[in-house]
Design a protein around this nucleic acid. Structure first.
Lengths: 357, 357
DNA sequence: GTGAAAGCGCTAACAC
DNA sequence: GTGTTAGCGCTTTCAC
């Protein structure tokens, strides 16, 4: 294992001794140096460099109760977690924003229900200043546990109505509006037998997109709606079922691009031309997928990285606000529902027209 | 922001008071309960539950110098970071192993050179017990910084020969052997004009695969080797160049599946049949890619998730060993090169035959 | 076996 | 401005 000496790291004390000042002064310099005269600042800085001093974060957190760290919880029980670039993009957005704010990203991946308790315990343990939580499923008890942990939280996607999610702050896309636009586009193309491959219906994004579909296809033939699971394989399966049940369909709206790509393969395999025989619209505008299918996908774009960034920004803003007002507002039982508290954001979507519809 | 009361969390002290014992006893119970008599253990446990006590990790770390956290550093400057399922898979493997060991995963994504200093500082700050580092580029100063930080580290992929990487522990695939096998397969198929699309040559994996290619195609026409960058777009670009330079080529070995998929598109676009006119082999066996291209890719499989798991296991084993021997071995300047220290692992690869070659 | 007491390294009042 | 001091909540000798 690569590593250098196990020599004990220098402490504030050591720096103070070397610079010939008190620990308090060193502390001030290390934390910005306000209210310390220039020559001293200089002396301390030099001592810090010479000794290679780095503050011990544990000691600092112990007194400040800040950690400059945020947990990112991805509650995806299945193998799907990362195969989907979706999470990756959100993570990037989050990472950028946190970095800019000098906060660390602690990644909590949950593989199954058991992990939820672990996550709850971790959050309650006061390791992090806040949490960003994704991909909740309707029956999750995670929100309850998180609520119980008393950690400021922003959700990615509108959470369901489980424990502790009323009043929750979240960032979401306009899933319903986007779906509506997608289906309207198909209708405008003259398609009349429009099918829908839904996402996993235990997630609000899938439900909202289905609602959007129904908004336009008010009395859609129920055979034209099949539940998928957001994976390419699920898209294939759903497409086969649709084709079997309703061979005369002339358009498909898939709840994400990954499923659309699966559907596309099945359509080709069954000899349907896209878009001539069947028009196809996806959701996400995940470039590596949407641009590289043949034909490229018409899809509903949501700015995923921006969603991530926004979540982080919302959380950090809340934390700053709270630490600013803390002395006054804190106390047993106080809720953080102050005026000016961050509130949820729903981002608009746009239809991107390519060749598939 | 969702959260419950800001009521101060109970401390050891509080639990001790409630259970009618000393802090020391509570601490013992919380940490396993050895050497505490059963009735007391029970009393303390109940008090813990009733109060909802969760240990404050900062306080604990301050004295134990353990953090039960491991940093995962992904040094990928470009947008590519996550679009590539490669990282995702490794992360999953790592996450599983860390979880089983009750360690947290702190994700450090670097977007550019500037971030390296930040990462170095973070690691030196003693936030984590060790680090897992990926995707180093040859000119990276990251290894130097990490070495300087004095944190036990395991690398993903053989690091180059920058600062502080001699003697480094790493987990890698047998890139050279795998490449050899791929190219031999093409040769066995009767192909004589075998081209190679390399990965980004500032990474050892790309260099090793190129070496493997050369091992078999001993005096390959230099026009048949084009540098790619591990992305689909890079694969397309490289394939175009190859076709322009050397239209008579009859086989291509791409250094990963993503580039192979790009190459495949270009081959189709230029009217070459795969595998009839041009046989194509990839590397990775990234299922969502390799299985779903048309035709499916023949490729060199490496077990990426297992690599991640192994990296974590190696690191954790090293940490355990070290904390066990610490009292004796530590001291200024001591290196952790003890007998029994984990050493690097190179995992075998296997050729997976599908339709493309 | 259990408790008392001494810090871990730092920040934040409060004096000077 | 700068130093002094009192903890933050926990683990860990060391007595009993």
């Amino acid at each position: 294992m690569t590593e250098s000496s196990t020599a004990p790291r220098p402490t504030l004390e050591a720096v103070a001794a070397r610079a010939g000042v008190s620990r308090a002064t060193v502390s001030r310099v290390v934390n910005g140096g306000d209210g310390v005269r220039e020559p001293l600042v200089e002396r301390v800085r030099r001592a810090v460099d010479e000794l290679g001093y780095v503050p011990n974060q544990a000691a600092r957190s112990l007194v400040t109760r800040r950690h400059d760290a945020v947990a990112v919880v991805i509650a995806e029980p299945e193998t799907r977690v990362f195969a989907d670039p979706f999470f990756a993009l959100q993570l990037r957005g989050i990472s950028k924003e946190l970095t800019a704010h000098d906060s660390q990203l602690v990644l909590l991946l949950t593989e199954g229900r058991d992990d939820h308790v672990r996550v709850g315990r971790y959050l309650a343990g006061g390791h992090v200043d806040g949490a960003l939580v994704f991909s909740l499923h309707l029956d999750d008890r995670l929100p309850g546990l998180i609520h119980g942990a008393g950690v400021p939280t922003v959700y990615g996607g509108r959470p369901g109505w489980g424990d502790g999610t009323r009043g929750a702050v979240y960032v979401d896309s306009d899933n319903r509006g986007g779906a509506r636009e997608a289906v309207r586009h198909l209708v405008a193309l003259g398609r009349t037998r429009v099918a829908h491959i839904t996402g996993a219906l235990d997630q609000t994004s899938a439900v909202d997109r289905l609602d959007g579909f129904r908004d336009v296809m008010v009395d859609a033939d129920p055979r034209l709606i099949v539940e998928g699971d957001f994976t390419p394989a699920g898209g294939e399966r759903a497409m086969r079922e649709l084709l079997d049940r309703c061979p005369e369909l002339d358009a498909v709206f898939a709840a994400n691009d990954l499923m659309a790509s699966g559907a596309l393969r099945v359509l080709r395999e069954r000899g349907r031309r896209v878009p001539e025989d069947v028009a196809l619209v996806g959701f996400d505008d995940m470039l590596p997928v949407a641009e590289q299918t043949d034909p490229p996908l018409t899809t509903v774009r949501q700015d995923i990285e921006e969603m991530g960034r926004l979540m982080a920004r919302l959380l950090l803003r809340g934390l700053d606000r709270r630490s600013a007002t803390e002395p006054a507002a804190s106390g047993p039982g106080s809720q953080s529902g102050l005026a000016g508290a961050p509130s949820s954001v729903v981002l608009p979507t746009t239809l991107v027209r390519r060749a598939s519809a």
